[in-house]
C-alpha cells in the first residue's frame, strides 16, 4: 500500500506541476524535502544517544522489567505476541507515557527503542509484525493531556484562556485511540486470514 501512496504522490505531483506550468518547483521541492529529512535524522542523533544510555541503565537495574510487569494485564491484551516482561514492553510503556505527557523529545527515542526490541521478535525483518502495527496505531493516536505547542500559539495570539482546549483535546484523542485499537484488531484478523 505504501508503494502506491509513495508513487502516487510523486507522479501526481509532477503531473500537476507540469499542468500548472511551474514544473521548476518539483526540483526545488525534492531537494528541500531531502534536506529536511537528513536534518531531522541528524537532530535525532543527540537525543536518541542520550535516551539509549538511560534505557540501558534502566534495563540493567531491572526497572524495565518491573515496569512491564506492572501494566501486564493491559499489555497482554494489546500485545499477545510479545512475551511477558520482554524489554519491548518497558520501552512501549515509556513511549506512550511520554506521548501522553506531551514530551515529544523523549517519546521518539523510546519509540525507536521499542521498535528495535519488537524487531528482535519479528520473524520477517522486512515486514511489520502484528505487535508493531498495534504499537504504531497506539502511538499515532495516543491520548494527549497537554498539547504544548498549540497552547503556546494560542498564548502568543492573545487567547483569554489558552488551555481551554485541553478538555476537548483529551476527548478527541480518546476517541481516536479507541478506534485505533478496534481498527487494529479487525485488520489484524483480516490480514491473518489472507496469509
Amino acid at each position: 500500500m505504501v508503494n502506491y501512496i509513495w508513487f502516487g504522490m510523486i507522479a501526481i505531483g509532477v503531473l500537476v506541476a507540469a499542468f500548472n506550468g511551474h514544473i521548476e518547483v518539483v526540483t526545488k521541492a525534492a531537494l528541500d524535502g531531502a534536506q529536511f529529512a537528513v536534518q531531522t535524522s541528524i537532530d535525532l542523533v543527540a537525543i536518541i544517544t542520550f535516551w539509549l544510555g538511560i534505557m540501558k541503565l534502566a534495563e540493567e537495574a531491572g526497572l524495565v522489567r518491573s515496569l512491564a510487569g506492572l501494566v501486564q494485564p493491559l499489555t497482554n491484551f494489546l500485545f499477545p505476541s510479545v512475551p511477558r516482561e520482554h524489554p519491548a514492553m518497558g520501552a512501549i510503556i515509556m513511549n506512550l507515557s511520554a506521548n501522553i505527557l506531551g514530551l515529544g523529545n523523549a517519546a521518539t527515542p523510546m519509540g525507536l527503542i521499542a521498535m528495535q526490541e519488537l524487531q528482535k521478535l519479528n520473524p520477517d525483518p522486512k515486514t511489520a509484525s502484528d505487535a508493531m502495527c498495534t504499537f504504531l496505531a497506539l502511538n499515532t493516536s495516543c491520548i494527549t493531556l497537554i498539547p504544548t505547542t498549540i497552547i503556546g500559539i494560542r498564548l502568543i495570539y492573545g487567547s483569554a484562556n489558552p488551555t481551554e482546549i485541553v478538555g476537548t483535546t483529551i476527548f478527541a484523542t480518546a476517541a481516536g485511540m479507541t478506534v485505533a485499537v478496534i481498527a487494529d484488531r479487525i485488520l489484524r484478523s483480516i490480514y491473518m486470514q489472507r496469509r
Partner: peptide, 30 residues
C-alpha cells in the same frame, strides 16, 4: 510510520496506514 519502521529497516507496512488514517479521521470527527 516512516521514521519508526525505517529505524529497523522495515519497508512493508501491512495495514498500519489504514488503521492510522482511520484513527486520524475519528479524531477529526470527534
Amino acid at each position: 510510520l516512516t521514521l519508526y519502521f525505517g529505524s529497523v529497516g522495515i519497508s512493508r507496512y501491512r495495514y498500519s496506514v489504514i488503521s492510522g488514517l482511520a484513527a486520524d479521521f475519528t479524531t477529526l470527527v470527534a
